[in-house]
């Protein structure tokens, strides 16, 4: 059993500091185990979140040596033996206490997205979908809502003072993607995505994809295809004319814009 050095940020909204701990560590431990040991023996009131201890619930997100990570999936043997390990709360969200932050912002974003609206069932009461089609959305549905991607996204880090019409963030971009690519869904979220959910603010830095513990290709498989759909809808003359010729109607106004114009006005691009 080796004694390891930890620095853990302790404090609350009023401020705080890194506190030193020296703590015995057994083979096979992850950072969360060590924090639990600190909590049980040296700092009973150390605040942190966890549930599954197996990378499935996304509760234990924090910054470990400056990297946004899940504490339950960060093994102690991934550090050198003499390294001091620093644990800090996520930077993008307001601190509540110690390693716990107020992530309610994220739950608010989810509500801004129009819910799933399925097509009718087949005559025999079944829905039929093919594995190839569901595989695509299942990649996004793997998300454990750890909000590490939200934490690293610079658009969200700098969101101060721009709360309205703000960017929903990478986690909710892939939630929109999972709905837009859902084989049964009939809703259209493209105008909202462009005008209300802030999709244009993302400049594809890919920081989100890098930290995702579920290895979801947030940018390449989620955000970029959505951005393409926006371009196609709003800017691609060929597609617009094509739709006109075929008589396909696609919204370019958001629901609230349509409501403001009053019912009956069908100002659509095709």
């Amino acid at each position: 059993m080796a004694i390891r050095r930890f620095k853990v940020w302790r404090g609350d909204a009023g401020g705080g500091e890194l506190t030193d701990f020296q703590i015995p560590v057994d083979p096979g431990m992850v950072v969360l185990d060590v924090l639990h040991r600190i909590q049980a023996t040296q700092a009973n009131d150390l605040a942190l979140r966890w549930n599954c201890k197996a990378g499935k619930c996304g509760s234990c997100s924090m910054e470990i040596n400056g990297q946004p990570k899940l504490a339950c999936m960060t093994r102690m043997n991934s550090f050198s033996e003499t390294e001091t390990i620093t644990c800090q709360p996520l930077k993008t969200f307001p601190v509540i206490k110690d390693l716990v932050t107020d992530v309610s912002f994220n739950y608010e974003q989810n509500k801004r997205i129009a819910p799933f609206k399925p097509r009718p069932r087949d005559a025999d009461g079944q829905y039929r979908m093919y594995q190839e089609d569901v595989d695509r959305v299942q990649e996004f549905r793997k998300c454990i809502e750890c909000f590490l991607c939200q934490d690293v996204c610079h658009v969200l880090r700098d969101r101060e003072g721009r709360e309205t019409q703000s960017f929903i963030g990478p986690r909710f971009m892939i939630r929109v993607a999972s709905l837009e690519m859902h084989p049964l869904d009939t809703e259209d979220r493209i105008p909202e995505l462009k005008k209300e959910l802030g999709a244009g603010l993302c400049n594809i830095t890919r920081c989100c994809t890098e930290v995702c513990p579920e290895h979801i290709q947030i940018t390449d498989n989620g955000i970029i295809p959505l951005k393409e759909r926006i371009v196609d809808r709003f800017y691609d003359p060929v597609a617009i004319i094509g739709r006109k010729l075929l008589g396909i109607r696609k919204r370019t106004k958001t629901r609230s814009e349509e409501a403001a114009q009053g019912a009956g006005s069908e100002d659509r691009d095709g």
Partner: peptide
């Protein structure tokens, strides 16, 4: 089956 109405996506058989 009702979960599918609410957006759940289960693995499929060959018949969908």
């Amino acid at each position: 089956r009702e979960l599918e109405d609410w957006g759940a996506v289960f693995d499929r058989t060959k018949d969908g």
